[in-house]
């Protein structure tokens, strides 16, 4: 069983709830459950991850059992069931990228951030992980950063340095 921390109190803003309503309107009546994946993305974009409290609220909104949400959230790799760094660097680790040095980039990011895959840096800013093919193999190595899944292509150690310092700047300004 997954052990979860119940540390979050979750409130959905009116804006978010309006967004939910727009999403639900895309499906025929009685098929509101179709909205589950897009809604989970919206919730994660706001909260950074999906706590069980947040998932229970989504279940209540869609009028389905909480377990149906857990089943889905735990199936797909994009949903985080644990808190993450503010920026999660997701680097492709699949064959075609590895042919042109993805493994070295992943190792380099680990060294540079001083954490292991899945851990969060002490300042709470970064975590990273290897992910499977991102459909950008011709621009390899690549990484993406949620919640907008901005893409960074043809990575080199220099461009990784640059990216990390840019992100730090961004964080200190916000």
């Amino acid at each position: 069983m997954l052990k979860v921390e119940e540390t979050q109190s979750v409130e959905f803003s009116t804006e978010l709830v309006n967004k939910f309503a727009e999403i639900v309107s895309r499906y025929p009546e009685g098929k509101e459950k179709s909205a589950l994946l897009p809604i989970l993305h919206e919730v994660q974009a706001v909260n950074g991850w999906l706590s069980s409290v947040a998932m229970d609220k989504v279940a209540a909104y869609l009028n389905i059992a909480p377990i149906e949400v857990y089943e889905v959230a735990s199936f797909y790799s994009m949903y985080f069931l644990r808190p993450q760094g503010k920026f999660v660097l997701e680097v492709c680790r699949t064959g075609p990228c590895c042919l042109v040095g993805a493994e070295k980039i992943i190792d380099y990011i680990g060294e540079k951030l001083g954490v292991k895959e899945g851990e969060v840096t002490a300042d709470g800013l970064f975590s990273y992980r290897g992910v499977e093919c991102l459909a950008a193999c011709g621009f390899a190595p690549v990484l993406q950063i949620g919640p907008e899944y901005t893409f960074y292509e043809n990575l080199t150690t220099n461009s990784v340095d640059q990216l990390i310092s840019d992100l730090k700047d961004k964080a200190s300004k916000s």
Binding site: M1, S52, P66, I67, E68, Y70, E71, S74, F75
Partner: peptide, 16 residues
């Protein structure tokens, strides 16, 4: 209240 969590060979029956 229970279902299948996770995917592939990590999938498990659980209540979460």
């Amino acid at each position: 209240v229970h279902g299948i969590l996770g995917r592939g060979d990590h999938a498990e029956i659980s209540t979460y």
